[in-house]
Design a binder for these strands. Structure first.
Lengths: 166, 166
DNA sequence: CCCAACATTCAGTCAATACTGAACCTACGG
DNA sequence: CCGTAGGTTCAGTATTGACTGAATGTTGGG
């Protein structure tokens, strides 16, 4: 506690990340917390640190931390001889976060499958639109791991190597 | 007007699509309208048809139709000698919808860039996390067109052709 | 065993926002 | 030039859901 306050620009970033994540189904607080954990010092922050930095209640911190951890966007760690829990957003979690993008497409694929089932007795021509959309989602869902893999390989191969042959 | 009502299963699909899109930043009505346009008969529906089918006000239909059209998820067409406007969700729009996914990643990349600018005077080690996240977004953003292209080629090449060499 | 510190839960409050519906605008038809 | 049908806008309403904070677990120290 008693860490330095955010600068104006840091606060702007934290707030913008809050709005950005809120625009895609998470809460503003989730975005703020993630944003702060991406730029804070030290890297690991206790619930008290976060409540202080984000001017939020303990309850909000608790619930939001769970949401972010479930989504694979932050990590929670405990230390022996310390009751507190430490939150952080280390680079490793980004890969997991990226892979999770596939879950979205899977969700939509499943919805379209239920829709197609509801149209079971309609002529194939009527079902074509939804079938096509289903195929789009299924394709992307299947493609995500490959993209993740390519990213990891590019990073491992060094920043200089681009390997962007068409 | 006076088209048949939705079956229970159709209604369930429409409602589920409403919730699904609502979970990702659009309104429930947008999801319902999209869902209905994916399964309705005839394919093209007037604003009056939609208001009737979805039990929604004309105002809601108007605003929602604009939102979906802007997002490239539906098409609006007009015919000579008919003042009405027709809405539809033909297969062609899905490609555009898929390509739009790149916009999301671009948005996040830009946010992270502003964050990095806000950390300009911090040591490189502190900036590493956010820089890494930025690289993830930038990579995916750049990768989206290739994925779209691959989908189009697979579809054009026939359902049997898979071409999934690593 | 009790205390203190930290974390979680959840009912209540408040702000954000999706939707309604009436007024307004526009364009074609007579 | 008026009438009508379709489309849009926007102020108001209702609903949702994010956040608060006090009560309730839980874990380690004395």
């Amino acid at each position: 506690m008693l860490a330095r306050m955010m600068t104006v620009r840091e606060s702007a970033f934290v707030e913008e990340m809050g709005q950005a994540l809120a625009a895609y189904g998470m809460t503003p607080m989730a975005g703020r917390m993630w944003g702060w954990l991406l730029i804070c010092d030290p890297v690991e922050q206790t619930a008290g640190d976060l409540a202080d930095a984000l001017q939020a209640s303990r309850g909000a911190i608790s619930g939001t931390a769970r949401m972010l951890a479930t989504a694979g966007m932050i990590r929670r760690t405990k230390r022996g001889g310390d009751r507190r829990e430490y939150f952080s957003a280390p680079p490793e979690v980004f890969d997991q976060f990226l892979a999770n993008a596939g879950r979205i497409y899977r969700h939509f694929r499943e919805v379209t499958e239920r829709g197609l089932a509801a149209m079971a007795d309609r002529p194939p021509a009527d079902r074509a639109r939804l079938q096509e959309l289903h195929d789009v989602f299924a394709f992307v869902e299947q493609e995500v791991p490959a993209v993740v893999d390519r990213f990891l390989r590019e990073r491992a191969g060094g920043a200089g190597r681009k390997d962007r042959s068409a």
